[in-house]
Simulated assay, not measured.
Amino acid sequence: MRTPTAVVTGASSGIGEATARRLASLGFHVLCVARRTERIEALAAEVGGTAVTCDITVEADVARLAEAVGGRLDVLVNNAGGAFGQEPVAEADLDAWSRMLELNVVGTGRVTKALLPALEAAEGVVVFVTSTAAETAYEGGAGYNAAKFGERAVAGALRLEIVDRPVRVCEVSPGMVETEEFSLTRFGGDTERASKVYAGVEEPLVADDVADCIAFVATRPAHVNIDRLVVRPRVQAANHKVHRTS
């Protein structure tokens, strides 16, 4: 019996790393994909997978990824992405906006395009990991909102375009997830500012919570498509409505 295969982008930390572990525990051979070779090699060794160093914004890297995948792929988890900055539009760092769009939208599109034939051959599923930033705009979020709204649009258009093919197109949209790097990256390594994001928030989501959702979506029967799953911690009713204890 053929071992099912999965590609997880952004697997060097956070949700991607947790998802690679979760899919491996379910019997997938996981291609752990990220830019940081040392991290993904350690992860791949631990879960019995394969490390593929890849910057999804670089065409040649994605071509090498497609070669490593080969002719069949059961699951693609488009997790690589990120937020840079949280300035209002009047003070926007437009270079940061360009980076977010290139990574979250164009890079994700590049990977999906390259691996779609292998997904079709295996009658597989692609899971886009977006964000509740794609649910509604918020102050200071314009660049990231645009990137995640854009990624959602890619998923939605793809689902319409390939409805006649045996590939499911799904989306997982997480809310507040406390991971080791997301907010630090967003605020340029400012630990104090990053820590304030979760100040007073009892039990935000953690990476394993989202990984469980991704694995659930990816392992439904072939006729079942989870168009979109929105997951937040209980204390977050909306992007702007979070209960804090202090």
Rank of each mutant, 00 (worst) to 15 (best):
E178D: 13
R110E: 03
E151F: 05
A122S: 12
Y144H: 10
G107M: 06
A137C: 11
T112C: 11
S131Y: 07
T112Q: 09
G109N: 12
P117F: 06
G156A: 07
A147T: 09
A146F: 07
A155R: 14
V154I: 13
V177N: 03
T136F: 12
V177W: 01
E120R: 14
E123G: 13
K148N: 06
G109I: 07
V154N: 08
E178F: 02
A114I: 08
V172F: 08
R110Y: 03
P166W: 07
S131F: 01
E171G: 04
V129G: 01
T130I: 15
A122Y: 08
R165C: 03
M176N: 08
S173Y: 00
A134E: 03
G150A: 12
V105G: 00
R159K: 01
R165A: 11
A155Q: 14
T136L: 11
I162Y: 02
N145E: 10
V111I: 11
V177L: 01
A134W: 01
G140A: 03
T179D: 06
N145V: 13
A118I: 11
G124H: 02
V105H: 03
A155T: 09
A137Y: 09
P174N: 06
A133M: 13
G107T: 13
P117E: 02
L115V: 08
A147S: 15
V129P: 03
A133D: 10
R159C: 08
K113P: 09
V154T: 04
K113D: 15
